[in-house]
Amino acid sequence: MEQPMTPEASLRLIDEMLQQAKRSFSRMSFYFLLWGALLLVATLTEYAMNRAGLPNGWLGWPILGTLGGIISAVHGSREGRKAGASTFTDRVFMWVWMAFTFTLVIIIISCVQVGQRPGPWVSILTAMPTLISGGILRFRPLILGGVLFWVFGLLALFQWPEHGALLFALALLLGYIVPGFLLKRQEDGLRTA
């Protein structure tokens, strides 16, 4: 790397390095797929147990929520160590999702305390980080997913409270799992580009 450089070679080198750095982005799709799947299982389990008249259907939420938290933390720390570089975007994601997680825990505990179903509120709250992530990544399916969490949350709250769990499950499928798969495909493409 010690030959004299022409202006063209300099520009080419800068461009090449910027492209290299682009491939070092964090893989966000993992988290959308993980949380989408876990929350979907928790929602449908609770719905099915309630319909069958079985008690403690809500237990899936804290169990799967804790499991998701542990997997996310381990995966995040492992990926961080492997990457060797961090971007401003990584920092924004970390703070947004951390703030979301704490607010989520507070809302779930508060709802249980006052005897309200947390589902619709969780859906409405989930819209925010999903929409922010979609905006930062310029990824429309996630932006749309965020809007769907608002819509389905409001419908569950005011229109069809009896089907709130199914609405939330649908929001998870369309707002997390489908965009998660699409994002994964895009990330795989960028890594190999």
Binding site: L18, Q20, A21, K22, S24, A85
Partner: peptide, 20 residues
């Protein structure tokens, strides 16, 4: 900066906040 490796390093650090 008019050196290939130094320019490459600076270009990478422009794109990421910090790199090891």
């Amino acid at each position: 900066l008019h050196n290939q490796l130094r320019l490459a390093v600076i270009s990478l650090l422009v794109a990421v906040e910090e790199g090891d």
